[in-house]
Amino acid sequence: MSQQVPPYPYSQQPGGYGPPTAPPGQPPVGYGYGAPVPPGPHGQPPVVPPPQPTGTNVMAILAIVFAFLFSPLGIVFGIIGRRQTRRTGQSGRGLATTGLVLSIVFLVFGIAAVVWTTILAAQFVRGVESIPSTSPDAPGVSAPVVSGPAGAGTVTIADGDYGPELPADALATEVGNQTGATDVICPGYLPAQVDASSTCDGTVDGQNARLRATVTAVAGSEASILISRES
């Protein structure tokens, strides 16, 4: 008849077999620091609990910082921080939420400020452009002039491609001589016909002026013109 093996090694307890015991004042054997983890049920590997996360999530802290520095990055860090704290259990979820909200608010206010500034700048530019220039040399700006008769003269008729005409150069010279205008330019040609007219541009007393030459009579090789200023 075989002898049964005791379930526990021989104990130093007086009186027989049993689980090992520790000397008085010491932790039980197998339950102290560095002791092996007891096996799981049915011989499964021991279940080791995962380490508990410590500290505040870095992305949550960055979300608060960049909410004031660069709000788009604050939004990104806030979203990442909320996800990481949910997954890992770290502290800082409140920081990530606060940074996300502040970043969104600052971004909205920044966009509104840019749009408002652009509108004001456009209105200011339009207001400046609408102010009439008082300088006679300003390009594209014609100073107001008083309309009325400015003089009369005669121009030698020449043969043109379409019949008798008053050449543009001769007409400009006569307009300048009769009105005192300078830099007179008469476009095209003026037919040597009564009531035919042409508008010339020039400068009178330092102001831009429009001078209209109208044929009043044709006699031989000369044509009489009446010159008037237009406002």
Results as ranks from 00 to 15, higher is better:
113 A>L: 15
123 Q>H: 11
146 V>K: 00
189 Y>I: 03
214 T>E: 10
149 P>M: 02
126 R>K: 08
193 Q>N: 12
203 T>H: 01
214 T>V: 13
151 G>S: 04
188 G>Q: 05
117 T>H: 13
205 D>R: 02
115 V>S: 09
175 V>E: 00
183 D>Y: 14
125 V>G: 06
121 A>P: 10
220 G>M: 10
172 A>D: 09
198 S>V: 06
144 P>H: 09
115 V>M: 09
165 E>K: 15
209 A>K: 09
215 V>D: 01
172 A>I: 01
168 A>L: 07
225 I>Q: 02
171 L>N: 10
221 S>D: 14
210 R>D: 05
221 S>G: 05
209 A>M: 05
146 V>R: 06
121 A>C: 14
216 T>C: 03
131 I>W: 10
167 P>G: 02
138 A>L: 06
148 G>C: 00
215 V>K: 09
215 V>M: 08
164 P>R: 07
216 T>E: 15
153 G>A: 13
194 V>W: 04
222 E>A: 10
127 G>N: 14
199 T>G: 00
139 P>A: 15
212 R>P: 03
147 S>V: 07
111 I>S: 12
223 A>H: 00
182 T>G: 13
160 G>N: 15
147 S>G: 08
189 Y>F: 10
158 A>R: 14
165 E>M: 12
193 Q>T: 12
209 A>E: 02
156 T>M: 06
156 T>D: 12
187 P>C: 15
186 C>A: 09
133 S>G: 00
174 E>I: 11
126 R>P: 01
171 L>S: 08
175 V>A: 02
127 G>S: 13
156 T>H: 10
114 V>W: 12
191 P>F: 08
112 A>S: 15
169 D>M: 09
220 G>H: 12
138 A>H: 06
133 S>V: 06
165 E>Q: 13
161 D>T: 13
134 T>G: 04
179 T>H: 12
144 P>F: 00
151 G>M: 01
133 S>I: 03
212 R>T: 09
197 S>W: 07
110 G>R: 08
205 D>G: 06
115 V>D: 03
131 I>N: 01
215 V>Y: 12
218 V>Q: 03
111 I>Y: 11
202 G>D: 11
148 G>N: 09
163 G>S: 12
157 I>H: 14
188 G>T: 03
194 V>M: 06
148 G>T: 12
111 I>N: 09
121 A>E: 15
200 C>Y: 08
145 V>K: 11
166 L>Q: 11
155 V>T: 12
163 G>M: 14
202 G>N: 01
111 I>M: 15
163 G>V: 14
181 A>F: 05
181 A>V: 12
189 Y>Q: 12
195 D>E: 06
160 G>S: 15
152 A>Q: 01
130 S>F: 08
142 S>Y: 00
158 A>V: 04
152 A>R: 01
154 T>G: 03
201 D>N: 06
204 V>M: 03
180 G>P: 10
116 W>T: 13
130 S>W: 03
190 L>V: 06
136 P>E: 05
181 A>M: 07
199 T>D: 02
225 I>Y: 05
162 Y>M: 12
132 P>E: 02
208 N>R: 15
136 P>N: 01
138 A>Q: 11
126 R>F: 00
172 A>N: 10
